[in-house]
Write a protein that binds this DNA or RNA. Sequence first.
DNA 1: TTCGTCCCTTTGTCGGACAAAGATTGCACA
DNA 2: TGTGCAATCTTTGTCCGACAAAGGGACGAA
Lengths: 258, 258
Amino acid sequence: MSVAESGRFEKIKVPSAYQMVAEAIEREIMAGRLRPGDEIGTEAELVRQFGVNRSTVREGIRLLEQGGLVQREAGRKLYVCLPHYRKLSDRMSRALVLHQVTFRELFNASMILELGVIEAAVDNADADDLAALEANQKQAEAAVDDPVRLAEIDTNFHALLARASGNRVLELAREPAALLFFPTSELICRRVPQGAGRMVTAHRHMIDAVASRDKEAARVWTRRHLVDWRKGFERAGRDIDEPVERIFERLSTARQYS
Amino acid sequence: MSVAESGRFEKIKVPSAYQMVAEAIEREIMAGRLRPGDEIGTEAELVRQFGVNRSTVREGIRLLEQGGLVQREAGRKLYVCLPHYRKLSDRMSRALVLHQVTFRELFNASMILELGVIEAAVDNADADDLAALEANQKQAEAAVDDPVRLAEIDTNFHALLARASGNRVLELAREPAALLFFPTSELICRRVPQGAGRMVTAHRHMIDAVASRDKEAARVWTRRHLVDWRKGFERAGRDIDEPVERIFERLSTARQYS
DNA sequence: TTCGTCCCTTTGTCGGACAAAGATTGCACA
DNA sequence: TGTGCAATCTTTGTCCGACAAAGGGACGAA
């Protein structure tokens, strides 16, 4: 029963062959000797190079596959690729759910992240970003009576805003929380009559604030938007201290926005 | 050369058996029917249940393994486990590097995240958190002449602060950036004579601010701490708009802090 | 040129095999 | 009766060989 054998020496780990295969390939990628778009050799070539069996090579490849470092094009050749944000964020979100974080944590973190995002967006948004936001707003206005669709549009709105920030670190940092947070708008729009209208109004003011580079208005309306969420959440009879439940059935089938 | 065949139909994806194995197990976990700590059956059992070959089962398991959803205890039984933050953050950091984000993005994002973290820490830190921070501070004072060690301590300082925030969403959101950002303190302490001293001083004031629940002081000193980083970074002859380079050799061998 | 057909390559899956190491059983001995 | 040790069973990691399906290219016909 020695789970945490605390002592003088570190536990010796003897990596298995398939792990070493994965690590070797990953090192090549991280060192820049394999670049995104390059194709890794065939399994037969890897078998020759590493001197292990094909089964072992394949297990190593599976490890990389999940990390998003390599991709198979339609069951065919194996390419190095840039891990896609969305996929990584999905994993993160799953972890948050399994760790049973509360809606309060989600709310507080999102307040910080979204305020940061919109401030950066005020500084950096260009015409394309604004056009994308306007298009999203049009969709929202047309969907005020469809909670499912509206929640999806809301999620996209904030993703577009994050992209407009021009800061990919921030964009990635907010995404795991956002993937759990904004889809709950559906619940709120469904239970609170004026919820949808207030959401659309807030989005309108946020876009305008970004367009006119008005940081103060941007902060005010973002905060209001999120506080609305919280009020709606409680009015819908939910407790903000309950853990985020498993809402991934919807998320995993949601349409990609990029 | 049809990489992005944009057309009327979505691409048809035919999932292979090993992917279905992984997805089936993952569904069980996310649905709560398999809980962290439970042991997944032996490979032989999975072979029976899924009706596929052992090689296929093993490839499926490798997919889950990388995601951190399952863990093998010393080459032995397979358990469901909670994905560890550190591992997920490592993946995220790698992705940021591969996407060639700039130090400017890293700096701006960290400013937002760390300010958010310390405000939450001011509200939520308990005696244990403060004790841990004090212990870290002692280490830092003893290592002012060792840039490598000091950078590690700085990284840990901010991780402890994030934990003190009591917000795991925020803690996770900041980590990918932090894993890239704070280790660069080594460079600065090495190149800028007064860098180490200013760092220790800033940490001192940050701890005091958290202990005395002084949010304004906490913000001021955090901002000063990060601005110091930026000045040092430029004084060390680096351009803040250059992409984050590949510094993972160090990171991957860095000691775990939790 | 365009199209279809044949052939080669590569992947996904299967079946079986074996050594090493953990887990279990059973026995000898105190 | 309880304890320590050896034999045995189980499970994993790795290897080997095999085959169907699908992609890709060569080659010839229209």
